[in-house]
Design a binder for these strands. Structure first.
Length: 937
RNA sequence: GGUCCUGUAGCGUAAUGGUAGCGCACGCGCCCGAUAAGCGCGGUGUGAGGGUUCGAGUCCCUCCGGGACCA
């Protein structure tokens, strides 16, 4: 008789290998066919809501690691909350308007674009966006993410566009919207504003000029030497044409400045730049006098070319952007022609003066150069400065440097202030109220609060307008007679109504007269004919109001939502725009909590980039390993820091996955003949180690549930893997093998083991389901189920630790047993090196007094716990466990491989088999003999 | 340059201011009844330097490295 055939070995159709690339799509297809997401929604209708509102990715390109990280994190949270008893409706969204698509379409169209109308171009942009929505949608679904994929929100949908315009109406109603000027990149040859992405840097030779500007007051207060002398500021610039627009000079109060004595008086420059200035100008300084530049704040100087303007102009201010890299440490400031300059202008109440027209020519505001293109005006201005005695260096000095050029015509661009629409941050305490809302919001991690707080506290007014075509138009008209803008809630509402029906194309397809509400007259001159605003709204405003477009009126969602979850860059992006629109529109933040994650970087911590190619495209990994590995990756790393991905990390995760899968498979194999409704045994039939195992399961359940609730998902993964390796594989399941394989298949001992294993596998599978969505479902399909169990694990609830309470006394006792077990396995090491199995050993353990009673209460089972053939416990002096290992003297049972004092000869082996094979009669241990008899052998 | 974050063994991750632990990898061995599996044993670490403290991975400062957002 072949004894191996009398064992109950694991048996299962659950494949050892995941073969995820093929299996995942099958599972997805089944979910789709079974309408699983809809069933989850219907089944949870009466439960409390938990709303995770999706931040829309941009509808361009294929998804990358950052998208995967973000969407899988969201999905794990949503699936966990669903299994935790909430109704979670997840509506994915896409950001569809904006420059990247418009630029791409521009490139694709090339010259063809010139013959197309705005509406035609917008149609192409729309098709482009929708194509990528479809592509990304499939990619997200492939990751196992659940959601309303058939009814996502898109910022180009009429309803969404309607909301955008309505919320602009709210800004108008609240008085936040105003028209101001702001410097933008401007291409004079294309006569258009350029976005940052449309600017190319290239070498350019510019004039390099030092200009002196005389202080009005006697400068004796700076240093006694200066009293009675003409003292001047020296500035340096490569754009002489901005000198007529100069309205201020700024210095850095932290730096040291000196006054250089020259023929005409004293010249103030930064100490560290004095030598380079003298070298460039060819001037000689008879003396250097240290000056305290802080005393210059607010002092007036005379502009070398223009007469006096308003009192606030031509003064010295402090600013941080002043550096010692080049120039003089005193920075010429023209608020209409530079970003830093603009900031100074806003801070000090200066005119945003930009006397340059669309074609890059001076306007009548500068009569001397009127109609001259600015770059051609440079030499003229230099000569005028020289004539005024203000040009300190030779006229032909130049500087070759990197300078912005138009991406299309390659001409050098200019900075030029143009009219823009702004949200006024300090109107109606908007900024203050936003800051208060920040403090009412939970930020995860907590430092998110400081980050956004700093940004909101310091940000300038929000420039809402963009000079582009692919977006939602600002609902504003201008009077044809007096050019006054018509800004009204009625007009916004009228536009909103039209957009809701026709989309925002209505603005372009309809005439201004058609768009104006009936009876509209210009508030300024009473005119009745209008032209349309051509600007569109900043896309951050569009996505910012998603709470209004998506959540506010949806009974499955509502406001405020529970959670926004995005990368930490969104403190300045979406969290920020949603906060400001929420506070200005509804008086409160649209979210209760905001969770942020870091960025995906390579193994060296460097951000991965398309140009460096320091990464493998995600779709390649997907095609090789499937989506589950990505989900494991997301769950395994602490997302609060930057998240690394590398071949080694993928390898480690794959190993972890196999461990989990194999352990589950082992349990399934040993449950093949187990029907929980019939075969489960009562608690009193469980052994100590069974009860201990259930206690450990209870602890795991508590730990993982807390980790999920606290969004500490990496603790879920590590908790699960550690439990698998330590508690299950190395300990409990290893100990169980003898009972499972050798005891009577339907005997109470084996059924007890199965009962416990069943509870473990059920809970284990459910706990992993939010992360390992496919594998958990697959295990669920093979698990003996109860009649009330749903057909998908994603319809099940998280396990409760009730019923698996940790018995403190038992746990303490097992701690002792496991301590001794560790000593025994260590003692066994030398024994096993002699080609012995641990079951060949007979172990004598000397244990210190305190442990003794803990061991004695399990004395009969210790050899099973230690997986040896016999254990004798003796007292020992001292507090070290003492282990002695010897070969067990008795014969080994050929069936269960344990050594016993004596074997029993099997009755039927005495006869013909023996004679035929001339073999010894077969003998087994008493336990196996009884089992064989019961089996009918 | 500014604001904020971050640095624990090869990789991932843990540690109310109180003995630096866990898993995987790696090395060595066992097993061949979870088998493209399983079991055991083993070495390796707080970026650097100061400070506070009886005691610092943890709090403070400086430096170095990395990141996000601004400029």
């Amino acid at each position: 008789m072949e004894l191996k055939k009398t064992l109950t070995l694991p048996k299962t159709s659950f494949p050892q290998r995941g073969n995820l690339v093929q299996r995942e799509p099958e599972i997805l297809a089944r979910w789709e066919k079974d309408k699983l997401y809809d069933r989850i929604q219907k089944g949870s209708q009466d439960r409390p809501r938990f709303v995770l509102h999706d931040g829309p990715p941009y509808a361009n390109g294929s998804i990358h690691y950052g998208h995967i990280l973000n969407k899988v994190l969201k999905d794990i949270v949503v699936k966990h909350r669903t299994m935790d008893g909430y109704h979670c409706h997840y509506v994915p969204g896409w950001d569809c308007h904006g420059l990247p698509i418009e630029l791409q379409v521009d490139r694709d169209l090339g010259k063809k674009k010139e013959g197309l109308s705005k509406i035609q171009v917008r149609k192409i942009c729309r098709d482009y966006a929708l194509r990528f929505v479809d592509k990304q949608r499939e990619e997200f679904k492939r990751l196992g993410c659940f959601g309303a994929w058939d009814t996502p929100y898109l910022t180009l949908q009429p309803h969404y566009e309607q909301t955008i315009v309505r919320e602009i109406g709210k800004l108008i109603e609240g008085g936040y919207l105003y028209r101001g000027r702001k410097p933008v990149y401007w291409c004079a040859s294309c006569r258009t504003a350029l976005a940052l992405a449309e600017v190319e840097y290239g070498d350019h030779v510019s004039p390099s000029i030092y200009v002196k500007m005389d202080l009005v007051e006697d400068a004796g207060y700076l240093a006694p030497e200066l009293a009675g002398k003409q003292t001047s500021l020296v500035i340096w610039t490569t754009t002489p044409w901005t000198i007529p627009s100069n309205l201020a000079v700024v210095v850095q109060p932290r730096y040291k400045y000196v006054a250089l004595e020259v023929e005409t008086g004293y010249l103030i420059v930064a100490e560290d730049l004095a030598d380079s200035f003298l070298a460039d100008s060819g001037l000689e300084a008879a003396a250097r006098v240290s000056v305290d530049v802080k005393k210059l704040e607010g002092k007036k100087y005379r502009h070398p070319l223009t007469g006096d303007r308003q009192d606030q102009d031509y003064r010295v201010w402090f600013a941080d952007h002043v550096t010692l890299e080049a120039g003089t440490g005193l920075v010429h400031t023209a608020p209409g022609h530079g970003v830093d300059d603009y900031g100074v202008g806003v801070d000090h109440g200066l005119d945003i003066f930009a006397p340059v027209d669309d074609g890059g020519c001076f306007t009548e505001e500068v009569p001397a150069y009127q109609s001259t293109p600015v770059h051609k005006a440079n030499p003229v201005i230099q000569k005028d400065l020289q004539a005024a005695g203000a040009h300190l260096n030779p006229l032909d000095q130049t500087l070759s440097h990197s300078y912005p050029h138009c991406w299309r015509c390659h001409e050098p661009i200019v900075f030029r202030a143009t009219p823009q629409w702004f949200v006024e941050l300090d109107h109606a305490d908007l900024r203050q109220r936003a800051l208060e809302e920040i403090d009412r919001t939970q930020w995860i991690p907590h430092w998110g609060r400081d980050r956004i707080h700093g940004m909101v506290a310091n940000r300038p007014d929000w420039c809402l307008s963009r000079q582009r075509a692919w977006g939602v138009p600002l609902p504003i008209l201008y009077c044809e007679d007096c050019d006054e803008p018509l800004v009204s809630v009625e007009l916004a509402e009228r536009a909103a109504d039209l957009f809701g029906e026709e989309g925002s194309d209505a603005w372009f397809s309809r005439s201004a007269a058609d768009l104006a509400p009936e009876g509209t007259v210009c508030g300024s001159c009473g005119g009745t004919s209008f032209r349309k605003e051509e600007d569109i709204v900043d896309v951050w405003f569009e996505s910012g109001v998603s709470w209004a477009a998506v959540c506010e009126d949806n009974p499955d969602l509502g406001l405020p939502v529970d959670l926004y979850l995005e990368g930490s860059d969104q403190h300045r992006g979406w969290f920020h725009s949603a906060l400001l629109t929420g506070v200005s529109g509804r008086g409160k933040a649209p979210y209760k909590a905001v969770l942020t994650h870091g960025f995906v970087v390579d193994k060296d911590g460097k951000p991965y980039s398309k140009s460096k190619k320091n990464y493998e495209p995600p779709e390649k990994i997907m095609k090789r390993q499937g989506a589950e590995i990505f989900r494991l990756w997301v769950a395994s790393e602490d997302y609060r820091n930057d998240i690394r991905i590398s071949p080694e990390i993928i390898k480690r995760l794959t190993d972890g996955y196999r461990r989990i899968r194999n352990t589950a498979r082992f349990m399934l194999g040993n449950l093949a003949d187990f029907d929980p409704t019939k075969d489960a045994v009562a608690p009193e039939h469980l052994t100590d180690v069974d009860r201990w195992a259930l206690g450990r399961l209870g602890a795991l359940i508590n730990r993982l549930r807390k980790a999920y609730e606290d969004y500490e998902l990496h603790k879920v993964y590590h908790g699960l893997v550690d439990y698998t390796a330590v508690d299950l594989s190395a300990l409990y399941l290893d100990i169980l093998k003898d009972r499972l394989y050798c005891d009577a298949p339907t005997g109470v001992s084996r059924r007890a083991a199965q009962t416990v294993m069943y509870e473990i596998l059920r809970a284990y599978t459910t706990l992993m389901a939010p992360v390992l969505v496919f594998t958990a479902e697959e295990i669920w399909g093979h698990l003996p189920r109860l009649p009330e169990d749903p057909d998908s694990i994603h319809l099940a609830s998280l396990p409760s630790a009730d019923g698996f309470e940790v018995d403190a006394e038992l746990l303490a006792r097992f701690e002792s047993i496991l301590t001794v077990r560790a000593a025994v396995t260590q003692g066994l090491e030398a024994f096993r090196a002699q080609k012995n199995k641990s079951l060949d050993a007979s172990v004598t353990v000397g244990v210190p007094g305190p442990l003794r009673s803990d061991l004695d209460s399990s004395a009969e089972l210790l050899h099973d716990y230690f997986i040896v053939s016999s254990v004798t416990v003796v007292d020992v002096d001292g507090d070290e466990v003492d282990v002695t290992v010897a070969e067990h003297p008795g014969p080994m049972c050929p069936r269960c491989w344990k050594h016993v004092d004596g074997l029993v000869v099997l009755p039927e082996t005495r006869t013909e088999e023996v004679e035929e094979n001339a073999a010894e009669p077969q003998s087994v241990c008493a336990r196996c003999a009884a089992v064989l008899k019961e089996l009918g052998h």
